[in-house]
Amino acid sequence: MHSEKQKHAFEPRIIAFVCTWCTYAGADLAGTSRMQYPSNVRLLKFPCTGRIDPVFILKAFQQGADGVLVSGCHPGDCHYIAGNFHARRRFAAFRKLLEFIGVDLDRLQFSWVSAAEGGKWVEMVTELTERVRAMGPMREFRELALEEQWSGALDAPELKEAYNSI
């Protein structure tokens, strides 16, 4: 019954930040229902989306994530009353900042996935993985990490000249 798996040249790394009560449980349900989705995603469990610091998203990109998924309880379902409402504002602002810096927001997905929405979880992961796969690797942060302390472009004429004169 196993369908022939398509091999891809590029397999993106997807990191998902999820709350334990809704999305983590939704992902569990996808498992118990034996739904299939790309294996590119790695989950980090938080008590609540309210705990998810924007710095973690930044850190994930710096650590080589090609796509990030942040997912929690639907509005009104938060186990902690209002954590997801606070998170919603925080991320609404943060994504605008990332966009302005030049991060393609197609790499950053936010969703509400409840404990009953195993199917939606699969859909979210599959969609993001495929979209990011088509976009190719997230080079921006990785290139920064590779750059040396020199504060100009490496192919700057002054630098070349200096090099040639040695």
């Binding site: 996808a30 498992g31 034996r34 299939q36 989705y37 294996s39 989950l43």
Partner: peptide
């Protein structure tokens, strides 16, 4: 969690 989030949702043994 290597069951719900891994063995049950992937078919390819190497990937999983």
């Amino acid at each position: 969690n290597i069951r719900e989030h891994c063995s049950w949702v992937h078919e390819d043994k190497e990937e999983a």
